[in-house]
Design a protein around this nucleic acid. Structure first.
Ligand SMILES: NC(=O)c1ccc[n+]([C@@H]2O[C@H](COP(=O)([O-])OP(=O)(O)OC[C@H]3O[C@@H](n4cnc5c(N)ncnc54)[C@H](O)[C@@H]3O)[C@@H](O)[C@H]2O)c1
Ligand SMILES: NC(=O)c1ccc[n+]([C@@H]2O[C@H](COP(=O)([O-])OP(=O)(O)OC[C@H]3O[C@@H](n4cnc5c(N)ncnc54)[C@H](O)[C@@H]3O)[C@@H](O)[C@H]2O)c1
Lengths: 239, 239
DNA sequence: CTGGCTTTGTGAAAACGTGCACAAACGTTT
DNA sequence: AAACGTTTGTGCACGTTTTCACAAAGCCAG
């Protein structure tokens, strides 16, 4: 019995959008919607309908022409493709402000990423319980990771400790890292790294604000007819 | 005296990297580094040196061949281009877990984005003080925004209230929004929207984990020689 | 079972982003 | 002032992503 293998390699841009579709489809299913067209899904996701179809086509031919996509089936297929048919426990490094907020956040575990452990280097924090999980010492990270077979780590330390945290995570056997610090980390080949940097997002917005101001000021000087305001950032919708 | 106008329109991909360069340059300046080559900067940013040069070339010809870039000058130029020569106060909508964590986070104001106000709809929260700012009622958002001439809003409400929050922000005069909820929001044309979705980031990592597993399992079946593990996600470094 | 309406799935074109490679420019050394 | 090593700035080719446009496929009415 052949494992149903991913047909082609899915483009990274598509992988980044599948979770968005997944969430929308789930919500629609919950309110009783059984079938959706690419147009409807595109509207809710804030993207182009052709893009939705192409994205979904990487999963297989799961739509019905003239009808649309079966919501429940599509949810299942996306979940399968993203590897969300089982939980992925995560280990959080750094039990400060952010680490505690994340640990206490249910939308985390609800989506299949329960907090499997938290570690910190500060003895004052070790032993305390946040989000129902007891904080352990960084030295014990390997046991924490291996006990629950964890493969995803989250870095929520100060930026200066980020590389240290990454090294510890890799040494403990983690193969994917989500980095919340502003520091760029180096990891061995084969380890996936995701980054969430608040300041970067705000600075991108500031750039657009700045451009808006420049454009408004310059409109009398430069004769280029009102160049359209860039209302779209890399990710996210704009209408 | 002509305002020094942005030469060309800077590609979005470059805009997203400039803040990373900026941070690194700032750190290097602080430890006494006065000059850097594109190679050195690229190394620290985890990107290709040619990309660094091309990115910086959009700002102008500020390097010196055979030498490199003057760190202080480059910091100034990037800050100017990104519109970071003055502060951008932000208003936070939703004073829950996340809203409070953000308000209390110094790395926010430190980078030029002081919290200019927080609003919530819950009377139990209104009046309390978080991060040194008093929580006001959503109804007063317009006054909050206009009093400090705020143009950036942050949404930290539950997902179900996100569209509502976005509408309130736009009505109050905000023109850029950073959305922390998983809900896709619709805004009028000309409003910039950035999105930070934790679950999406984790799901992308899960996909890579899943692929690793599939690849390992399938290695005996498929004769395609060990296809290189995708160790790079959209943003962030991987070595 | 035919015709009309709807919607998918996908080639092909266009737009965008990346990385190589090298001439031009600069500082330094002889 | 020429020769040399270094590093920028960018043309170009390549890869990826988006968008268009339409044939193929399905449903339904008559
Ligand atoms: N607080 C926020 O709202 C927020 C928002 C965005 C980004 N961030 C980023 O998240 C990171 C953490 O922020 P925070 O506010 O939670 O900081 P924090 O100082 O409250 O917490 C950091 C924690 O990490 C621990 N730590 C330090 N070195 C460690 C190491 N080597 N190994 C394990 N643990 C270690 C500390 O003991 C502390 O408990 C920072 O990089 C910050 O820039 C925070
Ligand atoms: N807590 C986290 O670590 C975390 C992490 C990632 C994403 N998020 C997302 O951030 C959002 C907020 O999370 P949270 O944990 O802070 O939730 P929360 O319930 O603690 O806080 C939400 C706050 O928003 C207020 N609110 C509700 N409707 C509002 C409205 N229409 N206008 C203004 N305020 C309103 C509520 O009164 C409450 O104070 C959620 O969408 C969540 O998915 C949270």
């Amino acid at each position: 019995m052949a494992v149903q293998r991913s047909r082609r390699r899915i483009p990274e841009a598509t992988v980044a959008r599948l979770p968005v579709y997944l969430r929308i489809l789930g919500e629609q299913f919950d309110i009783g919607v059984g079938n959706m067209s690419s147009e409807e899904l595109a509207e809710l996701a804030g993207v182009n309908a052709a893009k939705v179809r192409k994205d979904l086509s990487y999963l297989g031919s799961y739509g019905t022409r003239g009808v649309g996509y079966d919501v429940e089936f599509l949810v299942y297929q996306i979940r399968r493709e993203l590897g969300l048919t089982h939980d992925w426990p995560v280990v959080i490094v750094g039990a400060g402000n952010l680490g505690q907020a994340l640990a206490g956040y249910n939308g985390f575990g609800d989506r299949g990423f329960p907090v499997g452990g938290i570690v910190d280097i500060d003895d004052a924090k070790v032993g305390s319980v946040v989000g129902g999980v007891r904080v352990r010492h960084l030295d014990e990270i390997k046991q924490v990771v291996q006990a629950r077979n964890i493969s995803i780590g989250v870095i929520a330390t100060p930026g200066a400790a980020a590389q240290d945290a990454a090294d510890s995570l890799v040494a403990a056997g983690v193969t994917s890292i989500l980095n919340f610090t502003p520091t760029v980390i180096n990891v061995p080949h084969g380890i996936s790294v995701g980054k969430v940097d608040l300041a970067v997002e705000l600075q991108i917005l500031a750039y657009h604000e700045q451009r808006r101001i420049n454009a408004a000021q310059g409109s009398g000087v430069q004769s280029l007819s009102g160049l359209s305001i860039p209302g779209e950032s890399r990710r996210g919708a704009s209408a």
